[in-house]
Nucleic acid binder design. Sequence first.
RNA 1: GCGGGUGUAGCUCAGUUGGUUAGAGCGCCAGGUUGUGGUCCUGGAUGUCGUGAGUUCGAAUCUCAUCACUCGCCCCA
Length: 412
Amino acid sequence: MSVLQPVRGTHDLLAEESRRHRRVEDVAFETARRYGFGEIITPIFEFTEVFSRTLGETSDVVTKEMYTFTDRSGDSITLRPEGTAGVARAFISGGLSQHLPLKLFYRGPMFRHERPQKGRLRQFHQVGVELLGVDGPQADVEVIGLGAQVLVALGLKDKVRLELNTLGDAESRAAYREALVRYLSGHRNELSKESLERLERNPLRVLDSKDEGDKAVVADAPLLTEYLNELSRNFFEHVRAGLDSIGVPAEISPRLVRGLDYYCHTAFEFTTTALGAQGTVLAGGRYDGLISQMGGPSTAGIGWAAGVERLSMLLDETPPADRPLAIIPMGADVGALPLAQRLRQAGFAVELGYSGNLKKRLNRANKLNARAALILGEDELSRQAVAVRDLDTGEQEEIPLVALEDRLARFR
RNA sequence: GCGGGUGUAGCUCAGUUGGUUAGAGCGCCAGGUUGUGGUCCUGGAUGUCGUGAGUUCGAAUCUCAUCACUCGCCCCA
């Protein structure tokens, strides 16, 4: 291993990549703001218990994917593998139950020690939202609608589809889980090795198996919908109707599940087929049991998270870089630096060449995709003016120094 | 964590049955005279052939290990 290599599964984002990345974040935040969400910035590390208790001691994330270390105080610290736990912790430690309902947006790096693949990194980035304190289905519709709108705003509407399911409330889930385990236990010899493990740890996951043998067993398994109580059925109906009413079509996907106990009712995923095995691009659900499980006041919650790298890879075009003005001084003492400072203060993006003759500098200005070159020569200066060359049209004119800001307005 | 593929200049790749100075295109730099770009012409630089061992008179070419990337599984954004 060379220290000159980035750590496995980490990346440097430069130029076009960084602009795509930034675009995803900005569009998500801007859209969330229109839905009334404000930003919360939580630490990227927490006490390990924050994650082990919220994600469940048996989940893959906790058992084998966390970046955990002991700090100099002897505390066990973990780099956050996802965003919800930190937000929930902040909600409790900040006493934010005074401010319900609460709509929070977050963004930033997450860390999971997994085998890297396309669209799956060890340090990756998410944007996400949480809506706390609303237990009715209107919240689900609003949150999913926001997710859909983010994808629309990014131009990805035709590349993703929305899958929706309900897990029912605690009572419905417990009843169903019992029935499912009973059924699957009767078919142990037909299940794959993975699914036998799932049966122990996370039986609902068997429904989602890609193994053909498992699929055959699952085909005759009891259906969750048959175990939904009145309240749960009703809730789901309202979510579906609500999504219809805002023009966000969803496909009901009975095998879409969440394993952890605090999840309930709505589960959804926006998926794409364009990223290989990592098809999920934005996903979330309702987690009414989470905050109380962490020791806070019983509080409803629903949210989603989206993978910034995955979305970034789906963008059709890269946002353009700034198009600066290029100042080209001819001679040493023509005041290029003060002029650059003055124009920058006036709001222009300004590049200053560092070396070379006029031809070379024009060439560089061109490569920077500059809108115009400001040629500062002795002749022009003697007339208190600068030569301004429009690099798109090739037209060149002399502009008096005093009128520069006004006359350059079209290049801003 | 498990299985398959790949790894040659900044980028995309070529490299004959192992043979001596490792190539192309793009990009980069310089020049085509002293203040005018995007085209064109000419010239130039750049590689521990991912890394480390081994086989061999000789390895970018064969073997092994290791690292990274990649595809799939697991899981997930």
